[in-house]
Simulated assay, not measured.
Amino acid sequence: MVIYTVTGKVGQAGYLDIANSGDIAGKNIYVNMTNRCPCSCVFCLRQTKKMMEGNSLWLKEGEPSVDKVMDLFAPYDLSVINDLVFCGFGEPLERLHDVCEVIDRLKAKYPNLKVRLNTNGLANLIHGRDVTPELEGRFDTVSISLNAPDAEEFLALTRSKFGIQSFDAIKEFAVLAKAHVKNVVMTVVEKVMPEEKIEACRKICEELGVTLRVRPFEE
């Protein structure tokens, strides 16, 4: 599915197509525009959980066009939602230009729309340039998956196609993003690492000047 809400635990019936979500007032609405991702994280749901048919985020029919995404939004009043979140099973910024176009078209109608990006922080490596200026005026929050306290463990967990440079790249992305987005956070997943490593990640975030958020691990 392309546009969905989340209820209860993530996975299976936890993902609801916006068409089946009922009243969307006060909810977060999620946008899933690609399957592509440079990582293959060992804890990612796409690696560990088979989704029920009809509740899967895997885009079997390929990437939706910008016009298709806008058509899916058309029946809904986004002025009543909490956040619009670009995430899904792929890395949203694989489609940087298209994501920006969707946001621009939505904000033309809903100028106060709050938009969040959930990202692996590797967009600058994906595109071979600093893309963070393009986040300005579009995203209110950027949430970057940190996942590990050092480069070696980060690579072991994420299996990034960019190799050992990935860890430094996501830290640099966080620092660069701060100049363009008011709220930049980095995340780790509880139970994936012991508490002492989470604290090491917290120290890294303090040094970078961003907030650490510990995400719940879904069994």
Rank of each mutant, 00 (worst) to 15 (best):
G88N: 08
P194R: 10
V214T: 14
N20C: 03
N82W: 14
G163M: 08
A19L: 13
F167L: 01
A25T: 08
G88P: 02
V214Y: 13
E136G: 15
N55K: 07
L117E: 02
K161H: 05
A74K: 13
N124R: 02
N118M: 06
N28A: 01
N28E: 08
L59Q: 04
I3R: 00
D83Q: 13
S166M: 09
V31R: 01
G137K: 04
I198K: 07
P75Y: 12
L212D: 08
L155Y: 04
G26C: 10
T187D: 03
F43T: 01
P149A: 03
I24P: 10
E195C: 11
G62R: 06
E207F: 09
G137Q: 07
E206H: 14
T7Q: 12
A156W: 09
V214M: 06
Y30F: 15
P92C: 05
T211A: 05
V85Y: 12
S21Q: 03
G163E: 10
T132G: 06
F154P: 06
L122T: 04
V210Y: 14
G137F: 14
D150K: 09
D130E: 12
A174P: 08
G121T: 13
E195M: 12
D23V: 12
V6T: 12
E91T: 12
K49P: 00
A25G: 08
S79Q: 03
A148Y: 07
E190F: 04
P216L: 11
D130Y: 09
G54N: 01
S56Q: 09
K27S: 13
V210T: 08
A200N: 03
Q47D: 02
N120G: 06
G14Q: 04
N55G: 12
P64W: 02
I3E: 01
T141Q: 10
I81H: 01
R129P: 11
T119A: 11
C201Q: 01
I126F: 12
I81F: 14
T7L: 03
S160F: 00
K109I: 15
N20R: 05
L155D: 05
C201K: 05
A148R: 04
T48W: 07
R105D: 11
K107E: 12
P216I: 13
D150V: 09
R202V: 02
A177V: 07
V192L: 08
N147W: 06
G14V: 10
L117V: 09
R138L: 03
N147H: 14
P149M: 07
C201A: 04
S56F: 14
A177D: 07
G128E: 10
K161Y: 11
R129C: 14
T132R: 10
S143Y: 14
N124W: 11
M1D: 00
L125P: 02
C205W: 14
H97M: 05
D104G: 09
E91D: 12
G90K: 06
G163H: 11
N55M: 05
K27R: 13
